[in-house]
Simulated scan of single mutants.
Amino acid sequence: MLSQDEVAELKKFARVNEDFIDFLRDAAIEYEDTSLETSYSLMRLVQVFRPEGTIARKKVAEYQLKLDIPVGDA
């Protein structure tokens, strides 16, 4: 998983188009049955680029519950 500092650096320097963000979101959903940790990491990246995104927000909360990650510790 990326640290808070790594996420901040990525957000600062990355320029990502909407299609790639959609790809990350869809990949996260595809991995739900095989690797929830991967889904969580991918969806956290989606949140970096779409902080107001409702799907990412809901999925991250869902993954946190399933992975026993306290909400807000993402």
Rank of each mutant, 00 (worst) to 15 (best):
D26H: 07
N17D: 05
N17Q: 01
A14W: 02
A61M: 13
M1Q: 07
N17I: 00
Y40G: 01
M1W: 04
A27G: 08
N17E: 00
R50L: 13
E32F: 09
V71T: 11
Y40R: 08
D5K: 15
E6I: 09
E18R: 15
I55T: 14
D19S: 13
L67R: 11
V46W: 01
A56N: 04
V48C: 14
V48K: 11
E30K: 15
E32A: 12
A14R: 05
S3V: 12
E32G: 05
V48G: 02
D19M: 09
Y63D: 00
R57N: 11
K59F: 06
K66H: 05
L67N: 06
R25S: 01
I55D: 04
A8V: 05
V46H: 02
K58V: 08
D33Q: 12
F20V: 09
D26Y: 02
E6V: 09
F23K: 15
K12P: 10
S35M: 04
A74E: 07
D19P: 03
F20K: 09
Q47I: 08
F49H: 04
I69W: 02
A8T: 07
A27Q: 11
F13L: 12
V60H: 00
A56E: 03
K66T: 06
E6Y: 04
A28D: 00
G53F: 03
I69D: 01
A74F: 11
S41K: 12
E62C: 11
A74P: 10
R25V: 00
S41M: 10
D19I: 10
T38E: 03
E30C: 10
V60K: 01
K59Y: 05
L2N: 03
L42G: 04
L42C: 06
P70M: 04
T34F: 07
D26R: 14
D33I: 09
D68P: 13
P51Y: 01
R44A: 08
I21M: 07
K58L: 08
A14K: 06
L2F: 07
A8P: 02
V7I: 14
D73V: 12
